[in-house]
């Protein structure tokens, strides 16, 4: 376990050296300015701060611009019954299941632990038609991950907005998805966004889920 965690965190940080000569220079420069404060230094510092402020403002407005622009490119959230594309319907159904509840039935089943016959039956009934290899999906934690966490912490999940976009120019059927999920407990509600990529096989079933980013929701459910 130790190596696995270490490798994962190393991967997250990346192989590149983080502490560079630039860091050293900055630190020594700060130390020198502490040791020898001068009016010139103060002036340079103020100038630097002003520059940083301008840069931060530019970055802020650029982010707003890009975000707004990207939203305009997204399809509007369409009710399931109006979706004609079978692939999109499959993904939509899967995402709805993953981010709704847990209802009483699922809660009762989860209370019995992760290895009950009831849970096996529930998964087969709900996911067999949607995914190509249910066992693989379960093992890779792409089924019920967030609902299990919600159940443990006493939250209810509700998808507020589901966006599914086909990625053009790919050999297979590959889709980006973005779900705005409301998580609520004791009359208090918050939202978090989960994103990822889903591949479908030639039978229109989900064969692969990747690049899932559910950190915000995971954190919210703590």
């Amino acid at each position: 376990m130790s190596n696995r965690i270490r490798d994962n965190l190393e991967d997250f940080i990346g192989e590149e050296k983080l502490f560079t000569d630039k860091d050293k220079r900055n630190i020594y420069s700060r130390i020198n300015s502490i040791k020898e404060p001068s009016s010139k230094n103060t002036y340079v510092k103020r100038l630097l701060h002003a520059g940083l402020l301008v840069a931060a403002l530019c970055a802020f407005f650029l982010t707003i611009y890009v975000t707004t622009d990207q939203k305009n490119l997204n399809e509007a959230n369409i009710p399931l019954e109006q979706i004609n594309d079978n692939n999109v319907r499959t993904i939509h159904t899967y995402l709805e299941k993953e981010f709704t509840g847990p209802g009483q039935e699922l809660s009762d089943i989860l209370d019995q632990g992760l290895y009950s016959v009831e849970l096996e039956r529930y998964l087969e009934e709900n996911y067999d038609d949607l995914v190509a290899d249910l066992e693989q999906m379960i093992n890779r934690n792409y089924v019920l991950s967030f609902l299990r966490a919600a159940h443990t912490e006493g939250y209810q999940l509700q998808p507020k907005d589901i966006n599914i976009q086909q990625i053009e120019d790919t050999k297979n059927d590959v889709y980006n998805y973005e779900v705005e999920v409301e998580y609520s407990k004791n009359n208090e509600a918050n939202t978090a966004t989960v994103t990822g990529v889903i591949n479908l096989n030639e039978n229109g079933k989900i064969s692969l889920i990747r690049r899932m980013d559910g950190l915000e929701l995971f954190e919210g459910l703590n």
Partner: peptide, 15 residues
């Protein structure tokens, strides 16, 4: 798939 497994473990740790 392997990278995704790593990513989920990292996300769980960081959360």
């Amino acid at each position: 798939i392997r990278e995704d497994e790593k990513s989920l473990l990292t996300q769980a740790i960081l959360s």
